[in-house]
Simulated assay, not measured.
Amino acid sequence: MKRYVHRGGESGVAAYDTGPRSITIQFTDGKIYRYTYAKPGAHHVEAMKELAVEGKGLATYINQHIRGEYTARLK
């Protein structure tokens, strides 16, 4: 996984990994979740990928738009 570098200070996201149709996110509490085109949907997954690369607003986006809409909890 790639370390998430939040350009605005502290973040609840620690790391992420992207796939063609998914993003996997590790939060600072150690929990890991996978989000896919199936759930929460392609639009959200692609938005999260962009925010992850930019290092800006990923945790906020998840809190505001995604919440519990993940495909799988991996840890």
Rank of each mutant, 00 (worst) to 15 (best):
M1S: 07
M1K: 09
M1A: 11
M1I: 07
M1Y: 11
R3K: 08
R3L: 11
R3V: 06
R7A: 04
R7Q: 10
G9R: 12
G9V: 10
E10L: 10
E10C: 10
E10A: 12
S11D: 11
G12L: 11
G12I: 14
V13P: 03
V13A: 07
V13M: 10
V13N: 06
A15S: 15
A15C: 08
Y16V: 02
D17C: 05
D17G: 04
D17P: 02
D17V: 12
G19L: 05
G19D: 02
P20A: 11
R21Y: 07
R21A: 14
R21E: 10
S22Y: 05
I23A: 02
I23W: 00
T24C: 07
T28M: 08
D29G: 12
D29P: 08
G30E: 11
K31E: 09
K31Q: 13
K31M: 07
I32E: 00
I32M: 02
I32G: 00
R34L: 04
R34Y: 04
R34D: 09
R34P: 03
Y35H: 00
Y35Q: 00
T36I: 02
Y37P: 01
Y37H: 12
A38K: 11
A38C: 06
P40S: 13
G41V: 06
G41R: 03
A42P: 09
A42F: 05
H43Y: 09
H44Q: 15
H44N: 09
V45A: 00
E46F: 02
A47E: 06
A47W: 01
A47S: 14
A47R: 11
M48W: 00
M48Q: 01
K49C: 00
E50Q: 15
E50L: 09
L51E: 04
L51A: 13
A52Q: 06
A52I: 08
V53T: 08
V53L: 07
V53E: 12
G55M: 12
G55E: 12
G55D: 08
G55K: 05
K56E: 06
K56H: 09
K56S: 14
G57K: 05
L58W: 01
T60S: 15
Y61C: 08
Y61Q: 09
Y61W: 10
I62R: 08
N63M: 08
N63V: 04
Q64V: 15
Q64K: 15
Q64I: 15
Q64Y: 11
H65K: 11
H65F: 15
I66M: 10
R67E: 09
R67F: 11
R67T: 09
G68W: 07
G68N: 12
E69N: 14
E69V: 07
Y70P: 03
Y70A: 01
T71D: 08
T71M: 10
R73G: 02
R73P: 01
R73C: 03
L74H: 05
L74M: 15
L74S: 04
K75M: 13
K75L: 15
